[in-house]
């Protein structure tokens, strides 16, 4: 069982390492990740939302939909824990 898990881990790791071959160099300012969407946010977030913390601007507005569900996730977690674990007072 453990050997199997170890083998699976090695295979997965090898595939992941293989995938990194194409990656842009670490910290490259010209990498696609750093240019495509990012530059729009950096340039326009403040004029469009007047929020100097870019992360907050993107989090709260551009990707507010994600954030809403993030809140719902944590809400669900709370609810689920209560539902799963809580015992009624009487018993």
């Amino acid at each position: 069982m453990k050997a199997l898990a170890f083998a699976a881990t090695l295979v997965t790791g090898a595939i992941l390492l293989y995938g990194t071959m194409d990656f842009p160099a670490w910290g490259d300012p010209q990498s696609p990740a750093a240019t495509h969407l990012a530059s729009y946010f950096i340039e326009n977030a403040v004029p469009e939302t007047h929020v100097p913390n870019l992360v907050t601007a993107v989090l709260g507005d551009y990707r507010g939909y994600d954030t809403m569900f993030e809140t719902v996730v944590i809400y669900c977690a709370g609810l689920a824990v209560i539902a799963v674990l809580r015992r009624s007072k009487k018993s």
């Binding site: 194409d22 990656f23 842009p24 990498s31 696609p32 990740a33 750093a34 240019t35």
Partner: peptide
């Protein structure tokens, strides 16, 4: 993550 690193978009 891999896609994002390669394309910069989601």
């Amino acid at each position: 993550a891999y896609l994002y690193l390669m394309t910069g978009t989601l």
